[in-house]
């Protein structure tokens, strides 16, 4: 993932400086058989301290930047890391194949499953191919088609959510973006198999919930999930894009806030310094948590799973409802 396009995160300036010095010393050591071990160790200790202190108190806006970091593990990385025998399935059987939302069948810890998620891409070519993870109606109809398959063969559904939102475009509107999202939510609710959704980066509004109306909703530690992008919120409510940090605070879009509000079920810990620093460890944490939830859900019947999922969403916000 060396060909990422965006610059380093502004608040990581000191961290990256130390990381670069360590890399530099390691290279010098390799080339000239010199030994900088003690200095490298000192710097590594310093680095760890810096990472810990920075990442333990990220602001909501910094989390938003981390959640969007181009080097974060994306849906494809989770599929490669967690799913064996993955077999990609394409198309909505009506109009097109949407690469913004990819999916298929495979095995998760031995269990056959249906897996899907938005893929943002990691360089210019793949970003274009995947339309930056912004699905069109055919993407949400592919999701529904994959859920039909899951129901037919009694396969649990795992989704990975990572999108700034559904694609806003003329073609998407004329093919019924609103209808596609609405019916995808409905399809999720009618599933008679376990469904677990994990917000791995950005959970952007309707385009996210379309594949996240699940029995369990998990979120990476520094992921965000929001009704509107902080930028959109700032420009509508503050009428000023400069107020993006204020909007980010006000929206309560962090995993920690959403756990408090009962929107999500569990937070998946990220390695020190964020998921983009250690894919393997991140994906392994995700695996443990997803597996535990899946094992719990597998003990319920299809009808129970559907009922529980409906009740879960019918309750949301109700703990804030006063009695009639």
């Amino acid at each position: 993932m060396s060909d990422s396009l965006t610059a380093n995160l502004d608040f990581e300036k000191n961290i990256i400086e130390v990381e670069d010095r360590i890399k530099h010393l390691q290279q010098l050591g390799n080339n000239d058989n010199l030994n900088f071990d003690s200095e490298i160790t000192r710097l590594q200790t310093k680095l760890e301290r810096l990472l810990k202190s920075t990442y333990s108190k990220l602001t909501p806006w910094q989390k938003t930047q981390v959640a969007r970091h181009p080097d974060r593990p994306h849906t494809i990385d989770y599929i490669n890391g967690l799913i064996t025998d993955f077999t990609m399935l394409s198309g909505d059987r009506a109009f097109a194949d949407d690469n913004a939302l990819i999916g298929g069948i495979g095995r998760f810890c031995g269990q056959s499953i249906v897996v899907m998620g938005q893929e943002k891409g990691h360089d210019l070519d793949t970003r274009m191919k995947h339309n930056f993870g912004m699905a069109k109606p055919e993407g949400y109809r592919k999701a529904q088609r994959l859920m039909d398959l899951a129901d037919r063969f009694n396969l649990p559904v795992l989704t990975f959510v990572d999108t700034s939102g559904a694609f806003p475009g003329v073609d998407a509107e004329e093919r019924g973006q609103a209808q596609a999202i609405a019916s995808s939510i409905e399809r999720c609710l009618n599933l008679k198999v376990p469904m677990i959704s994990t917000v791995i980066g950005e959970g952007g509004s309707g385009g996210a919930i379309a594949i996240a109306t699940a029995n369990r909703i998990l979120m990476l530690e520094h992921a965000i999930y929001s009704v509107i992008s902080p930028e959109g919120c700032a420009s509508i409510l503050w009428r000023s894009p400069d107020k993006v940090k204020e909007a980010t605070e006000a929206l309560h879009l962090t995993a920690q806030d959403l756990r408090k509000f009962g929107i999500i079920d569990e937070i998946i810990a990220e390695p020190i310094g964020g998921a983009h620093r250690n894919h393997a460890e991140t994906i392994n944490h995700a695996k443990e948590v997803i597996l535990r939830h899946l094992q719990e859900l597998l003990s319920f019947s299809g009808e129970e799973l559907k009922k529980k999922r409906t009740e879960k969403f019918m309750k949301m916000g109700r703990k804030f409802a006063k009695s009639e």
Binding site: I181, A182, I185, S205, G206, I209, Y225, S226, V227, A250, L251, H252, L253, L258, F261, I263, F313, M316, G317, F320
Partner: peptide, 8 residues
């Protein structure tokens, strides 16, 4: 915030 999105 998200409490409104989940109303969908």
């Amino acid at each position: 915030g998200m409490l409104s999105l989940v109303q969908m």
